[in-house]
Computed example of a mutant assay.
Amino acid sequence: MAEITATVRPTREEVVPSRKRVKLPAWLEVAKPRLIPLLLATTLGGMALSEGWPLSSPRLVCTLGGGALASAAAGVLNCLWEQDLDGRMARTSGRALPSGRLSPTSAFIGAIACTLAAAMLLVSGVNCLAAGLSLLGLCSYVLLYTALLKPRTSQNIVIGGVAGAIPPLVGAAAATGHVGLGGWWLFALVMVWTPAHFWALALLLREDYRAVGIPMLPVVKGPVVTARAIKTYGWITVLLSSLGVFALPSGGAFYGVMLLPYNARLLQLVDRLSLDPDSLVNAKALFRWSILYLFGVCLLLILSRTDLASGFTHQVIQLLSLPTGVH
């Protein structure tokens, strides 16, 4: 008699191991330092898309330092707003505020200090536009996304993603004093990248969100609809990312060629998830790659502004402009 073997799916605990083993100091934990590097990478990407690239070392340091401080302040204010919610979820109940390792007063003072330091650093070392955009990003994350949209609509991250898309504008403003077409292109790219990235994570954590009544898309519509939406945004991300060839002041051909494997891998993982929306393994793989993808795009933007990339682009243009019959 043939034996029927059921496919045993790994549990959420197996796919998403606890971070309790990595214990950060309470004051650092609430600043959400894991989010800061990617925000700074997109800031650099916004700079690389500007004619003002490369920036002087002092201006570069002030821009990145101010951005990191503003991001830290936003993280702390987010933790303050959601401390009661975090206390009701097993995954987050051990965080600094709900566990009592850090007092709300201390956290609030730290957030204000980081905000003021960010503003002073950006105004004095960069320009007022960069400072204003950084503060706009902070406010949009805390007020628009965390307080207004997250608890009310399953499309929270689609609209609230504007907060994470502002750093490229800060980078562009720091480089030239204004935001050009390239900065707005990267802003749009991060906006359309965000839903697929975040919904992949939400698939992993949907039971946590369900338990506390947060209407994330996987909770409201289920994995199948979520995977379909992820696929849509994945394709939009790939198509929009390709326009970086035209957004770059130089090195566009180098960027376009090097981008191909990044986009191919993203589409592969998006398609794999759409075929098996209940797979936590597929959701985790897509979530991880989406982070590497955006880091990779920003790295390619920076590398595209080098002399080597410009030379490559020039050779490609010459090759394409050869008249028919010339070998």
Rank of each mutant, 00 (worst) to 15 (best):
V76Y: 06
E207N: 14
M47K: 08
W199M: 03
W184K: 02
Y145E: 11
L121A: 13
S103C: 08
I236Y: 12
Y262P: 00
L267T: 00
A283R: 05
W289R: 12
L35K: 00
G234D: 01
L143S: 12
S99P: 07
W81R: 14
L267E: 05
L286T: 11
T237M: 00
G251T: 09
V158G: 02
T92N: 11
Y145W: 09
L102F: 06
G67L: 02
L299K: 00
I230A: 03
W27G: 03
P168D: 06
V162Y: 07
R88Q: 15
S134E: 05
V142T: 11
T324E: 14
T7H: 13
T313P: 01
R288H: 07
G75P: 07
S106R: 15
S290I: 00
V219L: 12
N156P: 12
V316T: 11
A283T: 11
V190K: 00
G110E: 15
D84M: 02
L260W: 03
P58N: 08
L77Y: 10
S310F: 00
W185F: 14
K284T: 09
H314D: 12
L259W: 05
V192T: 05
H197T: 02
C128S: 13
A119Y: 05
L273M: 12
V316Q: 03
L320D: 06
S56L: 13
V76F: 04
H178E: 13
L286A: 08
P323S: 03
E13S: 14
G94V: 02
N282C: 13
L55F: 11
I112S: 13
R91Y: 12
A202C: 15
A70M: 15
T153L: 05
A113M: 11
A90Q: 15
G94T: 07
W184T: 10
N156W: 01
G251V: 08
L292H: 10
E13W: 04
S71I: 01
R272V: 13
T232L: 14
L243V: 07
L308M: 09
P223E: 12
W289I: 10
A48V: 09
G137H: 12
S56P: 03
R265D: 04
S106E: 15
G311P: 06
T42G: 03
G87T: 01
L102K: 05
A6M: 11
S99W: 04
K23F: 02
E29D: 07
L294S: 03
I36D: 02
S18L: 08
R59E: 12
I317M: 09
G75T: 03
G132A: 01
W184V: 13
C114H: 05
T7V: 14
L28I: 15
P54Y: 11
W53K: 06
V326Q: 06
L299P: 00
H314W: 07
L189V: 14
L133E: 02
V158D: 08
S321Q: 11
S103F: 06
L24K: 03
T105W: 15
K231S: 15
Q318C: 13
T11S: 15
L55H: 06
R95F: 06
G110P: 04
S106V: 14
